[in-house]
């Protein structure tokens, strides 16, 4: 059986909010490392990979690996019944038909118990190759969100150009064109507001903004986002949490 207790229900709520517009039916794969998921959107242009590490739960008990097939719209409905500060416990049998979710308030005088019906989900798992990216940019997640939301007003696509001078997000559409350039800067007082660029070679890639705007729904998870790019491979957009991560991969637009 699985028993996993999370100090703050808000963490799972934020994770689900971050991915539920991209993927609908998913498996939570529970193993010794924690609770993981990997899923592609319907068009196979984007892939989401999430891990809530077992260390983030206390306790985390698991007798054998199980997959919990979940419809995220249904899970969202149940999670709305939890307060962000509630303690959340997930429980499931070894061959589960349902997932139990127990919410307890911090004062320990309210316990809510919900059962979510599980589904059989046949999910394709992809091997994500270890990649030495040519450029890795870490920046405030709110800044990245603003740039994507601004540029999508002008165009469907954004070209991201990383060089030693900085990172340039540019687009052009029917009404005109626009760009935002960020230079590397180190904010000593507020490190989360720094922009860091690690570069082994310059990179220029074009991506669909619709997906990037969607990824930015994960901004609530982390004040910092990391973009990793190499020519001709999918972009990696990572939001790291205290004990886990949500990673999005986005296939580039290629050629003319």
């Amino acid at each position: 059986m699985l028993e996993a207790r999370l100090e703050q229900a808000g963490v799972l709520k934020k994770v689900v909010d971050a991915i539920r517009d991209l993927v609908q039916d998913i498996n939570f794969d529970c193993n010794d490392s924690g609770i993981a998921l990997q899923a592609m959107d319907n068009s196979h242009v984007a892939l989401v990979s999430m891990l809530l590490k077992s260390e983030g739960f206390s306790p985390y008990r698991l007798d054998r690996n199980i997959a919990l097939g979940i419809n995220l719209t249904s899970l969202t409905k149940v999670l709305r019944c939890a307060q962000n500060e509630d303690i959340l416990t997930l429980k499931a049998e070894d061959t589960p038909d349902t997932l139990s979710l127990i919410f307890e308030n911090a004062e320990n005088d309210r316990i809510s118990e919900y059962e979510l019906k599980l589904m059989d989900i046949d999910q394709e798992h992809l091997g994500i190759p270890e990649t030495e990216y040519a450029a890795a940019i870490s920046m405030p997640s709110a800044e990245f969100q603003r740039i994507c939301r601004d540029l999508i007003q002008l165009s469907d696509s954004v070209t991201i150009e990383a060089s030693k001078e900085g990172v340039k997000f540019s687009c052009s559409g029917d009404i005109g064109s626009g760009s935002v350039t960020l230079r590397q800067q180190n904010n000593v007082d507020k490190p989360d507001l720094s922009t860091k660029i690690e570069l082994t070679e310059p990179v220029t890639l074009t991506f669909s903004l619709k997906y990037l705007v969607n990824f930015c729904k994960a901004s609530a998870l982390s004040s910092v986002v990391t973009l990793s790019l190499s020519n001709e491979v999918p972009l990696l957009v990572e939001y790291a949490m205290g004990s886990g991560f949500v990673r999005f991969y986005l296939a580039p637009k290629i050629g003319e």
Partner: peptide, 14 residues
């Protein structure tokens, strides 16, 4: 703007 590629062109099934 280029042609949209897919994730499966880069990552293999296992």
């Amino acid at each position: 703007e280029g042609t949209q590629s897919t994730i499966t062109q880069f990552f293999e099934g296992r």
